[in-house]
C-alpha cells in the first residue's frame, strides 16, 4: 500500500472552494522531520562549531556553550529542511537522495518549508537572546547563504556551485568562536578557510563517481559540465591549496606539535590520493572513492586534534 493510498478518501460532496488537497491531514511523523534536518550533516556542523567554541581563548559557562551548540545544530537542521523543500525535484531524480521525506511523499513541500523557516527563526532568535548577537547574526547569514545563495542560486546555475557554496559549511567554527568571545579574529578565519578549501576536493571526488546521477538530475556539477579530466585537475589544485592551510594553525602558533604532525601526515595522504585520482580513468573509480572517504577522516582528525590540544587541557606544545 502506498503512502498516498493511506491518505484521505472523501466520500461526501466537497465544495470546490474547500481546498481539500491543501488541507489533507499529514502522515509525517517525528522521524520524518528529523530526516529533513540531515542529522549526519548536522553532526559535522556541531563538531566543527564545538571546536571553534572550545579553542576560543575565553572560558564560557557550559550551559551557554550547550545553548550555542543547540542553536547551531537547529540552524543547520533548518537549512537542511529548506534545502530539501527547494530541491525536492532534484532529490527525486537522484539515487542517493530519492528516499528523502519530500520526494517520498511523507512530508509535503509546504510542511518542509514551514518547518525550516520556523526552526531558522527560533535558532537565530534564541542564540541572539541567550548567547550573543554576533553569533546569531553569523548563524542567520549562514542559513541565508546555504539556502538562498547556494541552494536557490548557485547549485543549478554554475559548476563552481560547491566552491562558493562551501562557505556555508565553513561558517560553524566561526559561529562557535563568536559565541564564546563575542568577536572574531584570524584563528576562526583559518578554521573557516580549512573547511572552505576542503569542500571542493571532497564533493568533486563524490561527483566523479556519481556524475551520471547529477547529470540525470540536471545539476551542473564540474564532472558533468567540464568533464572528468578538468575535475581531476581542480581536485589536485584545491588539495594543494588545502594542505598548507591545514598545517597553518601549527605554523602560526595556534596549535601544538601533535596537530602539526597530524596535519602534515594526513595532508600528505590527501595529496597522494589526489594524485591517484588525477591518474585514474573511467570506469575505475576506486581512487575517487578513497579520496572521498579519507577527506572526511582528514577534516575530522584535524579538528579532533585541535579540540584535544586546545579544548581539553590547554596547548600541548
Amino acid at each position: 500500500m502506498s503512502l498516498v493510498s493511506e491518505g484521505a478518501d472523501y466520500r461526501g460532496p466537497i465544495p470546490a472552494s474547500a481546498g481539500v488537497a491543501q488541507a489533507e491531514p499529514s502522515l509525517a511523523e517525528f522521524r520524518d522531520y528529523l530526516a529533513l534536518m540531515k542529522p549526519r550533516v548536522m553532526s559535522l556542523v556541531v563538531f566543527t562549531a564545538l571546536v571553534g567554541l572550545a579553542v576560543a581563548p575565553v572560558s564560557i559557562h557550559p550551559a551557554i556553550a550547550f545553548t550555542a551548540l543547540l542553536c547551531i545544530a537547529v540552524g543547520a537542521g533548518a537549512s537542511g529542511a529548506l534545502n530539501m523543500w527547494y530541491d525536492a525535484d532534484i532529490d527525486a531524480r537522484m539515487t542517493r537522495t530519492a528516499r528523502r521525506p519530500v520526494p517520498m511523499g511523507r512530508v509535503k513541500p509546504g510542511e518542509a518549508l514551514a518547518f525550516g523557516l520556523t526552526l531558522s527563526g527560533f535558532a537565530v532568535v534564541v542564540l541572539g537572546l541567550l548567547v550573543n548577537m554576533l553569533a546569531a547574526a553569523l548563524l542567520a547569514f549562514t542559513i541565508f547563504f546555504y539556502v538562498v545563495i547556494y541552494t536557490i542560486g548557485l547549485k543549478r546555475w554554475t559548476s563552481q556551485n560547491i566552491v562558493i557554496g562551501g562557505a556555508a559549511g565553513a561558517f560553524p567554527p566561526m559561529i562557535g568562536w563568536a559565541a564564546a568571545t563575542g568577536s572574531l579574529s584570524l584563528e576562526p578565519v583559518l578554521l573557516f578557510l580549512i573547511i572552505f578549501f576542503w569542500t571542493p576536493p571532497h564533493f568533486w571526488a563524490l561527483a566523479l563517481y556519481r556524475a551520471d546521477d547529477y547529470a540525470r538530475a540536471g545539476v551542473p556539477m564540474l564532472p558533468v559540465v567540464k568533464g572528468d579530466n578538468a575535475t581531476r585537475w581542480q581536485i589536485l589544485l584545491h588539495t594543494f591549496l588545502l594542505v598548507p592551510l591545514g598545517v597553518a594553525p601549527w605554523a602560526l602558533g595556534y596549535a601544538g606539535r601533535l596537530y602539526g604532525a597530524t596535519a602534515v601526515v594526513t595532508g600528505a595522504i590527501m595529496l597522494v590520493l589526489a594524485f591517484q585520482v588525477f591518474g585514474e580513468r573511467r570506469p575505475n573509480d576506486r581512487a575517487a572513492r578513497n579520496l572521498f572517504a579519507f577527506s572526511i577522516l582528514y577534516l575530522f582528525l584535524l579538528f579532533a586534534v585541535l579540540l584535544v590540544e586546545r579544548g581539553f587541557g590547554g596547548l600541548i606544545a
Partner: peptide
Amino acid sequence: QSRDENGIVLTEAQ
C-alpha cells in the same frame, strides 16, 4: 477516513 457534517475523520495512520 471520511468527510461528513462532522468534518474530516482521520485514519489511524494519520
